[in-house]
Nucleic acid binder design. Structure first.
Length: 466
RNA sequence: GUAGUCGUAGCUCAGUUGGUUAGAGCAUCAGAUUGUGAUUCUGAGGGUCGGGGGUUCGAGCCCCCUCGAUUACCCCA
């Protein structure tokens, strides 16, 4: 039999990893809730039609498609053959795949809004933390199954949303200890204006694809690419002066005004960026005119968060404003703005910078050593009392050498061992040993929970939230 | 989809121009020690050298194919 394995780009998460991931997820969730966002979950799979064409040509290729069931059924076999022929020609067909794994959280969200807009209270603020799947080649910071955390506001054109979302980014990253993150901001309106000056709105996508590579390949290569794409000299000069804009946020805005002059789209973009920046002075938001973002449904403000410089990691979050996301699903006129956190990349960054708190790995607070059959039954009742007080503890499953039982506690990072043998039962007390310091002390049974709780401030009661 | 690097014990890795029976540390198990772990000492188990084929008297090492991991390009969180 072949060695068991898991699909490329997927991972199992052990207890330690799950706890660290939960730490990130809880931190993000708490901030989302603090700003009044409500949870939403959507299915792992969507109808293929819902996803196709929403992420650009490349995106379509990266959608994981699910093979239909029952293809070998005699009554479907003709249809399946036709479908396969089309597939070989590079065409997608629902004859073979009607469903696909979701590629991000935004499009399923838009689909949900389009289906339920009659019932929702607007502005509708939702957050969503779920896995998504992309058929990309895995590499550093890139997985085929990864978790996104999105918060979106729909049904409001107010820039206050942008300001709140920027603050959400800031609060989450500061709470995670990632002080040195970079929050970049731009507006698609600037890129639209650039396209207008360089051959028309339809050129926007190719221009943004080229200038998005600015920090990777440099100005000269970007210019080369633009020439290849058919830009004339005047147009590349304009793009070059746009890309050369530098300095403080204010200086950048001033320079942009000069380049774009009376262009309406640019004026609007500059006005919006100025307003957002004026209200986010407490946090570090930096204009980056080369920021473009791949997803083409954005129309206004766009955000991207980069990990601290010393970590070589792409963006750890991104988002933006879209005027008409649900228009794709037949419900026009609902604008929105949202942000996304890339949990898996944030995890890798925190790991690399050693920013996870140490006390995440405490599973249970105390291990009751098993000192024999009658003694263990006695201990069991004491353990149940502690559990009633929300103190997590466990009883070693069988009598055995203490050596082994201590090692078990150590491996599970359990801070205390509680020994109740015949002597202790007689005296109504327990020997409590702090496994970190090696100190041990006899504690009266009715004071056990109090002792465990007060002795070590690091260890807190299990906090259950529903 | 394109290219590079790497696959040796559960884990991290040695392994000489190709040469006897493939090693170490950690981990596991047993004992020194039947009421005291993490620090001590002794011993044991554990391998189709990713898989298949080839060259050779002889392959962990060289060649071909294949699978997997990883990194980069493209794109992205």
């Amino acid at each position: 039999m072949a060695k068991p394995s898991i699909p490329q780009g997927t991972r199992d998460f052990s207890a330690e990893t799950v706890r660290k991931r939960n730490y990130i997820l809880t931190t993000i969730r708490n901030v989302f809730e603090l700003y009044g966002f409500q949870p939403l979950e959507t299915p792992a799979m969507e109808n293929l039609e819902t996803l196709m064409g929403k992420y650009g040509e490349e995106g379509d290729k990266l959608i994981f498609k699910i093979l239909n069931n029952g293809l070998s059924d005699p009554k479907n076999i003709e249809k399946a053959r036709d479908g396969f022929e089309k597939l070989l020609e590079g065409k997608n067909t629902t004859a073979l795949t009607e469903r696909a794994l979701k590629y991000d959280l935004t499009i399923p969200f838009a689909r949900y809004i389009a289906m339920n807009h009659g019932q929702l209270t607007f502005p509708y603020k939702r957050y969503q933390m779920q896995p998504v799947w992309r058929a990309d080649r895995p590499q550093k910071g890139r997985y085929r199954e990864f978790t996104q955390c999105d918060a979106d506001v729909v049904g409001s054109a107010s820039l206050l949303n942008e300001i709140e979302l920027a603050n959400i980014y800031h609060t989450v990253f500061v709470n995670l200890g990632l002080q040195e993150y970079e929050l970049k901001i731009n507006s698609r309106k600037m890129l639209a204006a650039l396209a207008e000056l360089c051959g028309g709105p339809e050129r926007m996508t190719e221009i943004t694809i080229a200038i998005d590579k600015m920090d990777k390949i440099g100005l000269d290569k970007v210019k080369e690419e633009l020439v290849q794409r058919g830009m004339n000299a005047d147009q590349t000069t304009i793009i070059e002066s746009y890309l050369n804009i530098s300095g403080s946020n204010e200086e950048k805005l001033t320079a942009a005004k000069i380049i774009f002059g009376e262009n309406a789209s640019a004026e609007k973009g500059i006005e919006e960026l100025s307003f957002i920046l004026s209200q986010t002075k407490n946090i570090r938001v930096a204009i980056d005119f080369t920021l473009a973002r791949g997803l083409n449904y954005y129309t206004g403000t766009i955000f991207e968060v980069k990990a601290p410089m010393q970590v070589k990691m792409g963006s750890i979050g991104g988002g933006g404003r879209y005027d008409d996301l649900t228009g794709l699903f037949g419900v026009p006129g609902i604008a929105g703005v949202g942000v996304s956190f890339g949990v898996d990349r944030i995890y890798d960054v925190l790991e690399e910078l050693k920013l996870f708190p140490e006390n995440l790995q405490v599973s249970t607070m105390a291990l009751f050593l098993n000192m024999g059959e009658t003694e263990s039954l006695f201990s069991f009742h004491i353990a149940q009392q502690l559990r009633k007080e929300n103190i997590a503890c466990e009883l070693y499953h069988e009598p055995g050498k203490m050596d082994r039982q201590f090692k078990y506690a150590e491996k599970k990072n359990i801070p205390y061992a509680v020994i109740i043998g015949s002597k202790e039962i007689e005296n109504s007390n327990a020997v409590v040993k702090n496994l970190k310091t090696g100190e041990q002390i006899a504690v009266q049974l009715d004071e056990l929970s109090l002792f465990l709780f007060s002795d070590n401030k690091q260890v807190t009661k299990k906090d259950f939230k529903y």
